[in-house]
Write a protein that binds this DNA or RNA. Structure first.
Lengths: 232, 232
DNA sequence: GGCCATGTTTGCTCCTAGACAAAGAACCCT
DNA sequence: AGGGTTCTTTGTCTAGGAGCAAACATGGCC
């Protein structure tokens, strides 16, 4: 396996504050893996054999309920750690991760985690921050689902997605990976139909621009006002 | 300040695997504080000056939305760590914690955290697990709010509360701290009125027994079947 | 012991968003 | 190019649960 260059992970927060030699050391234990579009990186309830850093592409992480419904937990963007089940004391993955476009990730065996944190204490501290941020996000989502109606929830999700994976295009800001109305529905606790209706309404107001697996926000500020329930 | 006895925290998971001398050392830096019923332990958006372990009592942790609505994040039971904002990289508390009964907590200054984790690496690892568990809980809640109707959500919340703070009484299992219908509403994303109606219906079926700030589950198994949407 | 604040119950109305249904559009594969 | 799959749109109907309103309990406090 070719060595992974340190520059690839220069901005990965989990390595913050670690010495370059330490990072090199950690990278030496990782493998780089390709995940073609549509393939699972790991599956819910499967033994948590590995943890990962996404180098390229995008993943969709979702939970499956006993009755077969899916709930999208998040999308993973390049530079993010994922699959840290072992670190938080789980034997199995709590969700499934699937590549929504061809993706590349660094892979470490979970078994190495205890040794890695022992030799690199900063790793646990940084991971704690990462997991903490996710906890914040999850709580934000709970609050939104408890107190906001569907339209505002959709607005919030779109704003977050553009922040995480927005790419400037002529028409506005586009979410930089294929995302369906169904995905948005599964992130907001709404139905596909309602999401479609809301986006159609927004499109006719010039707020967003839709397309198959494509959403462009034309007026981020207006969407923000809507999300926060402020007067225009 | 009188020294805190080690036995008080023998079963606190955050100290798991630490040597007794290490635990003593950590305890020496803590203060024990009383929080009479109704007082705030910390407040949302206030500077995160301290982190805590609850020794006795129960706390209600909630978030306040810009428009004044409350959402209960969780109840804290004895033995749990809380207020670890600093550890997850926050300068301020993301929620408010209020004592629902007279409570006692160990208090450490947040400023000491970096030094403590540096000298006791196991602390970061254990905290990571604790925060990880909360992340799981939050995701469970998101899934429930996305896919279940109010009645099942209430059932799930009650089951979780009995697991966390259930006390056997003659009539069944009682939630061991004062909890209002409003609290349950704020944990489930329902309204006080709907919660009251659901509990009334259950009471007439002999499933639960209500009272002012009091909920007793008479038939945990039936409630479980209801929560999981299984036939009886 | 009585008052008052806080919490609970219940009735009625209304509306948001889900359920069901079906057609239409975009893309992929052979 | 054709055909099939996947994704999106739109219409109609309906119900779960919110909103509003008011009466009713319970326990703490003076």
């Amino acid at each position: 396996m070719a060595a992974v260059d340190r520059s690839l992970v220069a901005n990965v927060p989990i390595f913050d504050g670690l010495a370059p030699e330490q990072i090199d050391q950690l990278l030496q234990e990782a493998q780089s893996m390709r995940y073609p579009k549509g393939t699972n990186v790991f599956q819910q309830d499967e033994e948590a054999h590995s943890f990962f850093i996404l180098l390229h592409g995008h993943l969709r992480v979702f939970k499956l309920t006993p009755d077969g419904q899916q709930v999208v937990v998040r999308f993973v963007a390049p530079g993010e750690v994922f699959g840290v089940a072992m670190a938080i004391g789980r034997k199995t993955y709590p969700a499934t991760a699937v590549a929504v476009v061809d993706s590349i990730a660094l892979v470490w065996p979970s078994a190495a985690w205890p040794r890695l944190v022992a030799t690199h204490p900063g790793l646990a501290v940084n991971t704690l921050q990462t997991v903490g941020n996710r906890l914040q996000d999850a709580h934000t989502r709970v609050v939104e689902m408890s107190t906001e109606q569907v339209e505002r929830r959709i607005a919030h999700v779109l704003l977050r997605l553009t922040k995480q994976a927005g790419r400037k295009v002529e028409a506005g800001v586009q979410i930089d990976f294929p995302i369906t109305r169904q995905d948005v529905a599964e992130m907001t606790g709404a139905t596909l139909h309602t999401v479609s209706r809301v986006l159609s309404a927004w499109e006719s107001q010039g707020l967003v621009e839709g397309g198959r697996q494509r959403i462009i926000i034309r007026e981020p500020h207006k969407l923000f006002m809507l999300a926060e329930d402020l007067p225009e």
